Simulated scan of single mutants.
Amino acid sequence: MKLNKWIGAAAFAVSCLVAPLSQAADEPLKVGFVYVGPIGDHGWSYEHDQGRIEMEKYFEGKVETTFVENVPEGADAERVITQLAKSGHDLIFTTSFGFMNPTIKVAKRFPKVHFEHATGYKRGKNVSTYVLRTYEGRYVSGVAAGMSTKTNTIGYIASFPIPEVIRDINSVYLGAKSVNPDVKIKIVWVNTWYDPGKEADAANALMDQGVDIILQHTDSPAPLIAAEKRGLMGIGQASDMSHFAPKAHMFSVRDVWAPHYIRTIQEVMDGTWKSEDYWGGFAEDILQIVSVNPALPEDVKTAIAETEAKIKSGEFHPFTGPLKDNQGNLVIPEGKTLDDEELAGVMWYVEGIDATIPK
């Protein structure tokens, strides 16, 4: 069953038939996906759905999937997750940070169902988390932006003030600063994951302030399109956005979810699934630099490739000390690299970012 538009939690509940959790051995594994945005956002939700499609092809009829898109973070999410659990799904992927508490709450009521929550930090006996090392792609983005800016001012369109977003802003700035000591970063918070109008307005506001390279933690191509109209440049988010703004597009950092979905579903089928915190990035090829603009200067293209390679091999990690926050506190001592648990709790800006994290 593929629900290709949001029709409201109540309508969804009526449309699904309650089925027992146990299934015959010859029946397909039922897998549900909950998306915060539309599958046509050309970003985060789009790539999760591409992963779902690839996973279905891989298992050739052994898996039956359901997806619900445009699910608000909060009470509606809890209702949708509950209905998926009640309607016989063996495994449910909830794909946004704001689905964390609803996932944990529902999982306690359905202990035989497996749950996987993207980008969160809470686990349970039947709840795992899975996170992309997006900060790796952000560091490469910062290097490219720092080398390419003519105004020494880059801009970041931020969604919500959560660790994932704060961590990535820091990584962009650290990458830019590593190649351009004079670079500054301006940040606009839009408090949404997907709203093309707001995203375009934020991009234009940043460009009005002298920003000439646009980066984003939102999911539509609107910021890139805005940059193209003004003859400036930007970097694509989550999926390959090159076709939306071929001149403005420097490259995209693509999320490739199929390998994780295939691995997880195989573990459920084999009875080897266990609750864990999974992090994947360049090394696992679930984060990829794609469609580098051939018009970029050769030194920029070389820096992109070399920086990606150093991170992928483990030679370099963006969050290795010594590192201070923008209040002058030593947050990472010399020689120390933040582990995954520490990365999941980053709620400070690095030294040099002239901004305050919103409450």
Rank of each mutant, 00 (worst) to 15 (best):
D285C: 12
I53V: 15
T103G: 06
F67K: 00
A258H: 05
G210W: 07
I187Y: 06
I286W: 03
I225R: 10
S96P: 08
K30H: 12
G88I: 05
T94L: 02
P221R: 05
V179R: 08
T153D: 06
I225P: 03
I154V: 13
M207E: 00
T103H: 06
P28W: 03
R230L: 11
I214D: 00
R167G: 06
N180V: 09
F244P: 02
S178N: 12
Q83G: 06
N204K: 13
I7E: 12
V165D: 05
I185L: 14
F282S: 00
T103Q: 05
M147D: 03
V31L: 01
D212S: 10
G51I: 01
T95R: 03
K324L: 06
M100I: 11
V331E: 04
Y156D: 00
T149V: 10
N126H: 08
D26Y: 11
G137S: 09
G98L: 04
W257T: 00
G142V: 04
S291G: 11
V256C: 07
Y121K: 12
M1L: 14
Q216K: 13
S252L: 04
N204H: 14
A295S: 14
N152S: 13
M347L: 15
E27C: 06
F33Y: 08
E334L: 13
P333K: 15
A295D: 15
A77T: 07
K247I: 10
P72G: 10
T356F: 11
S87I: 02
G155V: 04
I157A: 00
F97A: 02
R133G: 05
G281N: 06
A107K: 00
A144D: 04
Q216W: 07
E308C: 06
A355P: 00
D49N: 14
N101S: 15
H217Y: 14
L215T: 02
T95D: 04
H243T: 15
T320M: 04
A283H: 12
